[in-house]
């Protein structure tokens, strides 16, 4: 598998083919905010905090860097006025779930009524359970604004011994969300 050369924030970066922009950036020591990305897991593209501006064939567009594959000659901007605007609003929508990012962008309160964000639905727990542990205890229940994380009742006892996904949880309140008895 070959490598490709590209520019991230003006810095020359090489990356293996098949990697994503986010992986290439992190490897090169360039930080892009992210929440649903976890190295061991398949790209998921849900939190949209890792949006970057990509210029290819003279066309610039905003993409999720965790899902966009690296390409030869790609030019990537990880910060701009437009990107800051997107990220700030996302942080506000997730409030108070991303405290470090809130601090970084100078957000001290949300203009929205965030009464449901004890979980960002990043799905790291669900995906960890399925992709790494192959237990498939957790799942996404419902759709749209009613989507939530739930545990298969018949299998929830598995969690007693595992609990590996807990450390990956952003909100820390996932257990309550999953309806687990001991949470």
């Amino acid at each position: 598998m070959g490598t490709v050369a590209m520019k991230i924030d003006g810095k020359n970066v090489t990356a293996d083919e098949g990697k994503t922009i986010l992986q290439a950036a992190l490897a090169a020591g360039i930080d892009i905010p992210h929440m649903c990305y976890l190295e061991q897991l398949e790209p998921y593209g849900a939190c949209r905090l890792c949006m970057v501006e990509v210029t290819a064939n003279k066309r610039t567009r905003m993409v999720a860097s965790c899902a966009y594959p690296v390409k030869e000659g790609l030019e990537v901007k990880t910060d701009s006025e437009a990107l800051r605007k997107v990220r700030k609003l996302l942080v506000e929508l997730l409030w108070p779930l991303a405290p470090e990012l809130a601090e970084k962008y100078g957000i001290t309160a949300s203009r929205f009524s965030n009464d449901h964000t004890d979980c960002s639905m990043c799905g790291k727990c669900v995906r960890y359970c399925s992709e790494i542990k192959k237990k498939e205890v957790l799942y996404f229940k419902g759709r749209g604004i009613e989507r939530e994380i739930a545990a298969v009742p018949e299998l929830v006892s598995e969690c007693v011994y595992c609990q590996e996904c807990f450390k990956e949880c952003n909100g820390g309140l996932i257990l309550k969300q999953a309806g687990m008895p001991w949470a």
Binding site: G45, C47, V86, L90, L93, G123, G142, R143, G144
Partner: peptide, 15 residues
């Protein structure tokens, strides 16, 4: 808000 999948933050939380 009810017919989308609810996967990504801007669409779910924004709507």
């Amino acid at each position: 808000a009810h017919e989308s999948c609810g996967k990504c933050v801007p669409c779910r939380e924004g709507l």
